[in-house]
């Protein structure tokens, strides 16, 4: 008996409306993601990374093939999955405090004591304890993104889907959030699908990197990252294996950059 994977795509095709009619964005994509894996989806701008993630999240419907989560076909958002959007400013409710934003996904289902405890715990995991009664519009971009991550964590998801969550942040904040994310994943054991166009970020975080290419997009490469955990911003990035992967991926993208 084999272990059931968290995510599975079989000959997945996605078409989206475009100017000349429907356009095929993703074609015949096969993918399997084991539970507890950290998988990054890497690719140039406009290849379809977001589209693939949205399909797996049940926010975009696919035209043919299968997108499966925990053995069930995904057609609409399913329990157990939480999505973190790149655009944190619009994903948060500006009229709710940090605490109440974090509670948003769970407050309907839990009793008060339990709710408070879950919310506190999620806020602790992203290090925002001191700001829990503040409104998001009074926080910095990085802090707002942490609120969104805490909101996802409060739902205790078994899968976390993140679309360039650190794309809009400065290098320092980015590094800090990467480490927090790794620690959270180690603590919760969640499966993470992480869309990024930052090669070094993908290597630093992942077990597996998937390279999307072409139009319509397919998986061009699947790279296993064998770096020890816990990872460290300085030590890990000086390991020969890290440098080899970095070289390999930049090489793979060289054509893209100059195309």
């Amino acid at each position: 008996m084999t272990i059931q994977p968290a995510f599975q795509c079989e000959r997945l095709c996605i078409d989206l409306p475009g100017a000349p009619g429907v356009r095929r964005i993703i074609e015949d994509l096969d993918l399997e993601v084991g539970r507890g894996q950290f998988v990054s989806i890497l690719g140039g701008s406009g290849t379809g990374k977001t589209t693939l993630l949205r399909a797996l999240a049940g926010l975009t419907s696919h035209s043919s093939g299968r997108a499966v989560y925990e053995g069930r076909e995904v057609r609409s958002p399913v329990p157990g999955m939480a999505m973190v959007f790149q655009d944190y400013a619009h994903a948060l409710l500006m009229w709710r405090t940090v605490r109440r934003n974090v509670a948003l996904g769970v407050e309907g289902r839990l009793r008060n004591g339990e709710l408070d405890q879950k919310v506190q715990n999620a806020i602790r995991m992203v290090g925002l304890e001191r700001f829990r009664d503040e409104y998001p519009w009074r926080l910095s971009g990085g802090m707002q993104q942490r609120v969104q991550i805490a909101r996802a964590l409060a739902m205790e998801p078994s899968a976390l889907l993140m679309d360039e969550p650190f794309g809009a942040l400065d290098a320092m904040t980015k590094a800090s959030l990467q480490d927090q994310l790794l620690a959270v994943q180690a603590e919760t054991g969640a499966t993470v699908l992480f869309v990024t166009h930052d090669i070094e970020e993908a290597i630093y975080l992942s077990n597996t990197i998937i390279l999307l290419k072409g139009s319509p997009a397919h998986i061009a490469r699947r790279i296993t990252v064998d770096l020890p955990r816990p990872r460290d911003q300085i030590v890990t990035k000086e390991l020969p294996e890290y440098l080899r992967l970095r070289h390999q991926l930049f090489e793979a993208f060289r054509h893209e950059i100059h195309a």
Partner: peptide
């Protein structure tokens, strides 16, 4: 904003919760 609508969907709020917690305050 589309992201707000998608966030509401992906949090799987019910119709009433979406109305009272997201749409009405956003439209206020």
């Amino acid at each position: 904003h589309p992201t707000l609508l998608e966030a509401a969907r992906s949090l799987q709020l019910g119709v009433v919760a979406r109305m009272t917690k997201i749409f009405l305050p956003a439209l206020l």
